[in-house]
């Protein structure tokens, strides 16, 4: 009953949707269980999670002073 029935191949296929929280709760729990038992799939998931964090951080960028000044002036005119 508690045995993971999902295969490594299925986990790999659905890993991104799992990480995006786009799977139904049953499939998501199956993958979670598999990842707790399978070292290779866990390593893969960890790698994708780290890469994803780096990609998410790419949205951080210092705004140029020119833009800050432009926005300040704009708000003053509101």
């Amino acid at each position: 009953m508690s045995e993971s029935r999902i295969s490594c191949e299925e986990v790999v296929q659905r890993l991104f949707e799992y990480m995006d929280r786009e799977l139904d709760s049953y499939t998501s729990a199956e993958i979670q269980r598999h990842l707790e038992r399978c070292h290779d799939c866990f390593s893969r998931a960890e790698f994708e999670r780290q890469l994803r964090e780096r990609v998410a951080r790419s949205g951080q960028q210092e705004a140029p002073e020119r833009l800050r000044h432009r926005i300040r002036e704009m708000i003053e005119r509101f």
Binding site: S58, G59, Q61, E62, A63, L67, I71, I75
Partner: peptide, 10 residues
């Protein structure tokens, strides 16, 4: 807006 400026721009 000032607080969020870097994220908005990024």
């Amino acid at each position: 807006v000032t607080r969020l400026m870097d994220r908005l721009y990024g």
